[in-house]
Amino acid sequence: MLTLQGLEKRFGALAALSGIDLEVPAGEILGIIGPNGSGKTTLLNAVTGVYPPSAGRIAFGGADITGWKGHRIARLGLARTFQNIRLFPTMTVFQNVWAAQHARTPGGLLGLLRSRPRPGGGDTRRVEAALEQVGLLASREVLARHLPLPARRRLEIARALVVDARLVLLDEPAGGMTPAETADMARVIREVVAPGRTCVVIEHKMALITGVCTRLCVLDFGRKIAEGHPDEVLDRAEVREVYLGGVDASDA
């Protein structure tokens, strides 16, 4: 589904990513962990076309997307969330999800001039289904900026659901959440996002990583230092040294 070959990203003299080779087969939930500044978000930004990589190749679903603009990559069936949550704050919950669906299929010049649907109207079934799946249907008329943090993260996920993305990239989906909210997010990822999709999850919270990921990749200083089954990877001495500072994984 997603293949990275020798991926490299430099910002001036700083090598944020170097020599990353990664293969994400269809249906997998890959977790990416690593200390702050290890290149996790840079990797995600390079894959989604926020900026082009400095070297290496990126292939998605059989197409070489190296250097493509973000909107072209998105249209191939890729959706993402953001570490610092990005929503359209002055749009309602409903409008945010509808906008995501509409951005993929503007429908030509005549389609653009049609009026925007109101909740409950014509082609809003998919939007409402997505909101239902993340438990936000009752808040559909609320402005996005008025939502509490866990609901905002779920709204970002509803956006990925409505466009039927094949690959969903989640950047710290449980960031800033309590243990109970984190458990709820893990359930949403397992039961709603994962079925029928391939996922890449960046996360610090071990509860979420061990709860949802089928495979784990560890980054440090922009390099991949380990990859494999979560239990086995987290047990390796070098991973515990770099990432957990020698603390037992179960304490984190």
Binding site: K69, G70, R75, F88, M91
Partner: peptide, 16 residues
């Protein structure tokens, strides 16, 4: 309005 609100997000959602 999507472009005006957050053009990076608009781009990530597939808008030119």
């Amino acid at each position: 309005r999507m472009l005006g609100s957050d053009d990076l997000l608009a781009d990530m959602q597939g808008l030119n």
